[in-house]
Write a protein that binds this DNA or RNA. Structure first.
Lengths: 124, 124
DNA sequence: TGAGATTACGGGGAACGTAATTATC
DNA sequence: GATAATTACGTTCCCCGTAATCTCA
């Protein structure tokens, strides 16, 4: 089973139609269908009934949904915590060196560092 | 974030080395490194410290591990239930039809059905 | 006729593995 | 010298999107 496919599953379960789910995730209709089929095959059971008015969960699908929702919850919590813990340095970095060393060795390092920590300003 | 990458993360966290984790999952060393980097970039933080004796979790990594483990647990439960709910028909299927219809139309259908439900034996 | 699912098909790129490089013991 | 990470590189193949088809209102 592909864990990523559970997001697809969730979207379809919520939207009820491949098109809507596709739009929500930023994917296309066929892709949604494919990923769903892949999941169903991996699990060896049908998750949705294709009815006239959209996709409606089967009993097994409903059971899966419960798990998938808990997984999503954990994933979101994980991301929240990650972005929350993200921290940026902020201040001035001053350093000196001989001319040639500064230009040849330090410049690229400082440039790279600047990308990582844009709040830090280098001063000469 | 790619949910599937969490399995990679778990494997590395448990094995402590890319090689071992790769072996366990059936992947190669570079792949593990790549997936891990992808995850770290998606989360915007470093999950492991590359030390002399393998990969050791950072504080943030430890926090992520807790979530990842719960996710894995849910995923496993989901799969258990799916395979548990898998049900096989079992018995004899007897049907009759005119000769030409049986050979032309029914045969392929029965063959396909037989693959799905091997416990069911067709009888003429 | 319109919305949606499914199938067909072709192309692009992502991701993988092999191999080379570096580092550490 | 061996083990392991990382980088480089070439290639495959898989997955995706477009388009066509089919079905049901």
């Amino acid at each position: 089973m592909e864990w990523s496919d559970l997001r697809i599953f969730l979207a379809i379960a919520r939207e009820g139609t491949l098109g809507a789910a596709a739009r929500k995730i930023g994917q296309t209709q066929p892709t949604m269908g494919r990923r769903l089929r892949a999941l169903e095959e991996a699990l060896g059971q049908t998750l949705f009934q294709r009815t006239v008015d959209g996709f409606v969960l089967t009993d097994e699908g409903t059971a899966v949904l419960a798990h998938a929702e808990r997984i999503e919850e954990e994933a979101l919590a994980l991301q929240r915590q990650a972005t929350g813990a993200e921290m940026q340095l902020d201040g001035t970095l001053r350093l000196s060196s001989s001319d040639w060393f500064g230009t040849v060795m330090l410049s690229p390092v400082i440039a790279a560092f600047g990308k990582l920590q844009p709040k830090v300003v280098a001063s000469s």
